[in-house]
Design a protein around this nucleic acid. Structure first.
Lengths: 151, 151
DNA sequence: CTTAGTGCAAAGCTTTTGCACTGCA
DNA sequence: TGCAGTGCAAAAGCTTTGCACTAAG
């Protein structure tokens, strides 16, 4: 069993909350799709395979809980849906990976490099604003689409 | 009169669209609040001071038009509203300024430095993804709130 | 047993759309 | 005068909430 599933149960106990089948099923779906960026509706569809009776409201409520616990991250691609993905395993760093969004095929890629420390130091020095987190989206065209365009 | 107002009229003519009082009033509101990040409803409220009879739908329709023309930029702070601000004057660079969002007072600051070229080159070299635009949000605590916290 | 959690349906919100009327060009 | 633009109201679509029932601890 994934260590994060246990961590989830610990966190629930800490808060006096209960471990339900629906909750673990939702987390499992996110754990099983680390490279996807699922909407609530998509998560709902996948969880329904294991728990056909689950309600969409339950999905929304638990997504919010998982987000509060920093087990999953919110992602907004400005397409009208809020999307979610399992958090980076490295909890020590407050840095998330960046997202590359292809304007042709619509796919979203992750880019692990960070390199924003210099920029964040500069922000601190110039403005006094202490950065604790960031969200970075790059828009453009992925390699496959560029090669397709050449032909 | 602001040069961008004339540019707007030119762009409208190019597309065979008409210059209406509501349109120019909406653009003027955005031109007059360069440091704000207004929601559609807020723009509506401000335009109403000049044009009490304007409808919210007109604001939405023209915001979209201005955004298509790259005269204003969309900004999403994940608070349930889409926000808008006048575009950077420097149209040559495809780079927008970054946003610093204070988690305590909720204010949004702009940071003009860019420094992402190195990162974008690295993305290109590593993944073949050609970046054409980016959106960067930094979350943290602004200087004033930090000083307030110390006391 | 006690209280949090769930499912369902209804409500809430921002944003979009249909339609008849208005007013630029 | 013709057609794009506007205002209003209704619709759309994602997300939240109220409530009675269920189930975890």
């Amino acid at each position: 069993m994934d260590e994060r599933l246990n961590r989830f149960k610990q966190l629930l106990k800490q808060r006096g909350l209960k471990t339900t089948s629906q909750r673990t099923a939702i987390l499992k779906v996110l754990l099983n799709t680390p490279d996807e960026h699922l909407t609530a509706e998509e998560i709902y569809g996948l969880v329904k395979q294991d728990w056909p009776d689950i309600g969409l409201a339950t999905v929304y409520r638990n997504i919010q809980l998982l987000s509060d616990m920093h087990l999953i991250d919110k992602l907004n691609l400005d397409d009208g849906y809020v999307r979610y993905e399992i958090s980076d395993v490295d909890q020590a760093s407050h840095h998330h990976h960046h997202h590359l969004i292809c304007s042709e095929c619509g796919r979203v890629f992750a880019f692990e490099e960070d390199l924003l420390d210099v920029l964040e130091e500069k922000i601190m020095a110039t403005t006094g604003f202490r950065v604790s987190d960031h969200e970075v989206k790059f828009f453009g065209v992925c390699r496959e689409c560029r090669e397709k365009d050449k032909k």
